[in-house]
Amino acid sequence: METILVLLHTEAGAPVGKAGLEVLEAARGLGGDVAIGLVGADCAAAAASVAGAGRLLAVEGEAFAQPRYATDASAAEALVKAAGAGIVLAPATSRWARCLPGVAQRAAGRIDTHVTGLNDGTLTRWYYRQRIEASLRRAERPWFLLLEAGIGPAYAAAGAAGAAYERVTAEPGSRTEAKGVIAPQSGEQTIKPEAELLFVAGAGWTKKQKDGAVHMDRAAELILGMLKGSGASLGSSKSLVDLSGEGHAVLPFLSHLNQVGQTGSTPRHAKGLATCCHGEEPHVVGWRFIQDRRAVNLDANCGWARGKADVLYVADAFEVMEELNRLLG
């Protein structure tokens, strides 16, 4: 029977998180022998939280706590070898996304990323930035898969504390040292992954309004007011952030990190509100994982909101937001 290895990073003293448990449950559904490969400074708590789900292996040590390619890759490489894995699954975190393709290369294997479903040896994944969905199988082994969050139910832990795990040694050398994590912007954080609402600002905010003039300052005030009142995360269209980067007098608090859509991110939020986006990618790609979608747009026949938003308000966003901010106050 084929061995399926689930790779998980651990935080000292913390159980395996939801994304990891989802991957584990997906692995269990594949019908092979499940092995769990843990990587971190101290894997005991994580091991305990998944005890009983399969064979437990771990690469442990301070060197492996740091999120960096060389140590993550050597840990994963060692775990794949030790487990004799034919299929290797990992959650698509920044850490695994960074190193797993390289590990696949070392193992002479193949990799698929952006995997959203896994059923009976056939995966579903995205191509062309969430615009085309394919299902495929592979004969080559080992086969590495980076699984997107939300792939399925999480594994419900039933194990007892103190579950034993096999220690695997890996090369701890690296010429890199992780120094820490910083928030990219000073002042108020505009990207809030945990927010219920994604507020998308489109290029229309920077265009000439009814009076033939551009009202950037007012637009900035309204958008920031909205974020403050609603606690929303801020997304924007590509054209808007591109303008910001080229010395134009546009919204100063926007950066490419805010960009959603075809060449930006595809965030997950329960609700999304797009304003002044006409034919902008938020409606097409950036909204892929937004459940409840509304848009404020001046054009009732905007084909890009129709069919993609649940509600389209045909209204002037400046006027609506003025009032909305007062209500959310």
């Binding site: 006409h278 034919g279 054009d299 026949n301 905007c302 084909g303 890009w304 129709r306 069919g307």
Partner: peptide
């Protein structure tokens, strides 16, 4: 009678 396929707004046609 806009149908979003062939008869689209001029703004959509631009895109």
């Amino acid at each position: 009678p806009f149908d979003g396929q062939l008869l689209v707004t001029q703004q959509d046609a631009l895109l």
